[in-house]
């Protein structure tokens, strides 16, 4: 799975964490910020749409929108934290596989937030979290990971 970028945005649309997997130039960061900004609008729309009776109220929001370079997927926690994944896969990506990444990232965030020295509302600054995100990304970068199955 070509994870290009992982982003966490807080309840007030405050930036919490932005990680470009490959080293990014200033230009690339600007592009990422722009994509994320649009993605947040898409998240709001999706959440409003999903409010119908009987609709499954999942954290996973699915594909928010494709841009020229990325497929942007979204996830919304009950504490209104938005997690975004920018994938640069050429081919099909299974929802299942993306969901799995989100769940792991969510778990990492919850544990980081459980650090007594964590400050809600401020950007995440945890070396442990950084390393763990790296770990998740590397697991899912394997061939076939986008399809939900894994190959070693």
């Amino acid at each position: 799975m070509g994870i290009a970028c992982v982003a966490f945005i807080g309840p007030q649309n405050n930036p919490m964490y932005l990680r470009s997997i490959d080293p990014a130039s200033d230009d690339l960061y600007m592009k990422l910020h722009y994509v994320i900004h649009c993605a947040l609008d898409a998240v709001e729309e999706k959440v409003l749409l999903k409010r119908g009776p009987g609709d499954s109220q999942d954290a996973y929001l699915g594909l928010l929108y494709p841009t020229e370079d990325y497929k942007v997927y979204g996830y919304l926690t009950n504490t209104h934290v938005k997690v975004l994944l920018l994938l640069d896969d050429e081919g099909a990506v299974k929802d299942e596989a993306v969901m799995r990444v989100f769940r792991r990232l969510h778990g990492l965030y919850v544990d980081t937030a459980s650090n007594p020295f964590h400050k809600f509302g401020l950007p995440l600054s945890s070396p442990r979290f950084d390393a763990a995100v790296d770990g998740v990304v590397s697991i899912y970068r394997g061939a076939g990971a986008s399809q939900g199955g894994f190959m070693t």
Partner: peptide
């Protein structure tokens, strides 16, 4: 955060 982690929205 912990208790709503696996809960539907």
């Amino acid at each position: 955060e912990r208790y709503t982690r696996d809960k539907p929205r």
